[in-house]
Design a protein around this nucleic acid. Sequence first.
DNA 1: TGACAGCGGGAAACCGGTTTCCTATAATTA
DNA 2: TAATTATAGGAAACCGGTTTCCCGCTGTCA
Lengths: 342, 342
Amino acid sequence: MDATIGQVAKKAGVSKATVSRVLNDSKPVSKDTRLKVLEAIKELNFKPNPAARSLVSKKSRTIGVVVTDIANLFVSVLVKGIEEIAHSSGYNIFICNSHGSPEKEIDLLMMLKDKRVDGIIFLTSNLLKEHKSFFAISYLPAALVNVSCNQNRLIGIRIDNYRAAFDMTSYFLEKGYTRVGMIRGSLADQYTGRDRFVGYWDALDKHGIVYDEELVKTGSLETIDGYLATKLLLGKNAYPEALFVACDLMAFGAIKAIIDHGLRVPGDIEVAGFDDVPMASYYHPTLTTVRQPIEEMGRLASEKLIRLIEGDDIDRWEVVLPHKIIFRDSTAGKGRVEKPIV
Amino acid sequence: MDATIGQVAKKAGVSKATVSRVLNDSKPVSKDTRLKVLEAIKELNFKPNPAARSLVSKKSRTIGVVVTDIANLFVSVLVKGIEEIAHSSGYNIFICNSHGSPEKEIDLLMMLKDKRVDGIIFLTSNLLKEHKSFFAISYLPAALVNVSCNQNRLIGIRIDNYRAAFDMTSYFLEKGYTRVGMIRGSLADQYTGRDRFVGYWDALDKHGIVYDEELVKTGSLETIDGYLATKLLLGKNAYPEALFVACDLMAFGAIKAIIDHGLRVPGDIEVAGFDDVPMASYYHPTLTTVRQPIEEMGRLASEKLIRLIEGDDIDRWEVVLPHKIIFRDSTAGKGRVEKPIV
DNA sequence: TGACAGCGGGAAACCGGTTTCCTATAATTA
DNA sequence: TAATTATAGGAAACCGGTTTCCCGCTGTCA
């Protein structure tokens, strides 16, 4: 069906080797022969068989991508960035959903290695020692998104989650609120989740507010988790004046819960999220949030990984991209009303 | 680095052919030899090289997936379904974003063919004759999502968009509203977009309402398009009592526009969407919408395509899955207030 | 006992490219 | 003019599997 290099060679009256040289510019070929070969290629509509190429080059031109769940907005935007660069560099991407399970993650990493991918982009909120040793032993080029790792030859792409959470929380505190709550990610998250939580805590601390565990609940990053966690929070007798939520999806759930509880956002409780997914500016009320350059993170991970795969040198292994707080309606409250001094 | 079949053969004291037979159960092997081979495989941690296998089998175990934009919620949920089945059947998926451009779509289809994918899943709202002839000429197994095509040997997965739109619109009309508007998809969409629009029109017709082009605007399926289209609609002197929007994302934009305009949903205008993306039940107000079994559509496309690739017979080439209208707050209005008969 | 079928297993061809090694010719230098 | 050096391009090995073809052994039947 498809033409082979042998047929092209015969048609052009040259050897397979010569056709290969024309295809890859791997050795000089005279103008005449080159033209004959190109002509034959065009006439037969010849496309080199990638499997045959892979076999000898030992490169699959495929990047494995392990993510928690492609249907999550953060993830799909990240993948879009990854795909854009990979595709334009001639790489396929091979996406796998781990559903956040560490065992599944390990399985997937090993499976990708068996499939001979050239490199891996790994999105996880929790980098375990099993993960680290996989990368150390396998020698597979890899880029980690969202976590930092001082291990040798591992690319890391993230934002300063600690700082972002610190600043977001400080905004509420400087508005005069003393009861600032948080819906945080799972306690198992040693990186993203932890950094955002510590940033929140440190901001309280710096502003002389004592951490109150009654004001903090945990959810697993889905909208429904934000909803349920906030419901719990509101069950207490004294609810927060402001709420910092560890991701936008949960923040939407939180706002829904507050409204269902008969309170207003931002009138009664101000809410801020994290990520700035596209929906944040169309939710009602629009959501104040920490903007991560998600697509850019994907592009950068892809680009650096491909450089690493192709043996170019990497100037910086760890990249911390800038974030930005985007203020919208969900925090457009008046701040604490000071008691007038008589 | 990685062990080869030759090394396994040597270690087990047999020929490569025998190892291959054990791996694939392609010819009987005595119990003794089989055990020796399995032992050697385990000891060397041997994993067959997929490129070498592909070369001889002429199968890449890869499915090309062409979608408009992976960051779109409908798309990412669909891809999740596709990935689930493909992965569990040992197939990779190779995702490409067309951004809705027909030229790009053709380019991607041809590129996938050159990459020797075993089959293609194609999500498009508009099946052009160039697409059809690609599938006809290339003989590549393919599954189309969202469009119907009477062409031979093409799998089609969709819902009855016409009926769904008809029913949704009828709901408003039967509530007594006479001014029911629509934000429809692009005029270029000959399938999904057209069916939903015709369903809307026919419902009006059946209820004796004359189609009013002032009440219909067009958008390109993104949230912002819904917002802008609705803004336009509200600019007119008499706005609709109810609005049927061709997809959820645009519906969110529409609701936002209505609220920004100083009106209430559903108090002043009722709104319904289409798709039932996860956010629909967490938007404020929660969104009435036509539920498509998106993930199931992905799974089914994947499953049928793999059957086709592997030569099993296909019982039904066209599958029309059931949809369901999910009623939520955005249509919880009282209906037209009848003038009391004195 | 001899002929033949059935079965396990090895050697080698093959898939379609790339790369090494080598040769013939042209160009350069002594 | 002879010797040397570049250069284009061919033959064949190779990548790592699968598959065909064939052979030797055992068991069965006449």
